[in-house]
Design a protein around this nucleic acid. Structure first.
Length: 285
DNA sequence: GTTGAGCGTT
């Protein structure tokens, strides 16, 4: 029998793709899977019974119905109830993988003066997805200070980058975990966190909206005039402490979360509170 | 207009 093609589609009413048959009139499951990754069989709607029918499958070989394949459209079967395509499966497992290890900003030391954020993105983009890049500059002159920061989407990428030297615009550069991330900071029991490296365009609403995702936000305080930091208070102290040490990206900039140092005035008050026995929570929040 | 170990406007 001459080679012919059968019509196969992902769903009954989708545009079919023509799949080649073998010389003996059968179709190999592997041929189907080559076009529909993850496929485990075929079915079709019987013109007689109007029911879906399964195509006979023996050891990887699909056998035609009694009257031949005909001009019917065959629908791909996927394992179990799992009708996702392979690329979707890959994407979802990648998403799970992404969540297992958080990345942190890396300091990039030794940058040429001329290197820009775009240069950093271009260079490090070859290693993996770059989600933040900065070149630190003198505020007055705008000149580069010769170092910057970069953050990757994936932990694997971050590790790869840390473990080698980098030739960027003609100079050898090093990527390290910044000091702010090294050494275990002892977390204190506080509902309030310090948010460092804020930019001036971050409003209290922005911060509230952003931090809501971690838990109920009870207060946002931004000192004025602008001082590049803020305080965010949560209803739950565990939420607060879980964020300490993190670098989070708000409006495209990396902010650093750490313990809110208790206000000096509050230390005095808290001593006073404890001596006087009123509710500590009421007065020393 | 300069420089070359460092640490991000607390």
């Amino acid at each position: 029998m001459a080679e012919m093609y059968i019509r196969v589609a992902e769903e009954e009413n989708e545009e079919p793709m023509e799949i080649p048959s073998e010389d003996d009139g059968t179709v190999l499951l592997s041929t189907v899977a080559a076009q529909f990754p993850g496929a485990c069989g075929l079915r079709y709607r019987s013109p007689i019974s109007q029911c879906m029918r399964g195509v006979r499958l023996v050891e990887g070989v699909l056998h035609p119905p009694e009257n031949g394949w005909g001009n019917l459209v065959y629908v791909v079967n996927y394992p179990k109830d799992n009708k996702r395509k392979m690329d979707e499966i890959d994407a979802s497992s990648a998403k799970i993988k992404r969540g297992d290890q958080k990345t942190s900003d890396l300091i990039v030391l030794g940058l040429p003066w001329k290197t820009t954020e775009q240069d950093l993105k271009d260079y490090f983009g070859a290693f993996g997805e770059v989600i933040m890049a900065q070149v630190k500059r003198d505020v007055k002159t705008g000149n580069s200070k010769g170092f910057g920061f970069v953050r990757f989407a994936d932990w694997e990428t971050q590790n790869k980058v840390i473990n080698q030297r980098h030739m960027i615009d003609g100079r050898w550069c090093d990527c390290k975990l910044p000091n702010s991330k090294q050494g275990p900071d002892e977390p204190m029991r506080s509902r309030k966190v310090f948010v460092g490296r804020c930019t001036e365009d971050m409003t209290t609403d922005d911060l509230r909206q952003f931090f809501m995702q971690y838990g109920e936000v009870t207060d946002v305080f931004i000192p004025k005039p602008f001082r590049a930091f803020a305080f965010v208070t949560f209803a739950d102290d565990q939420v607060a402490s879980s964020l300490c040490g993190e670098d989070l990206i708000i409006k495209g900039v990396s902010v650093h979360i750490s313990n809110a140092e208790p206000k000096h005035s509050n230390i005095a008050i808290s001593g006073f509170c404890l001596g006087r026995r009123p509710s500590v929570a009421a007065l020393c929040g």
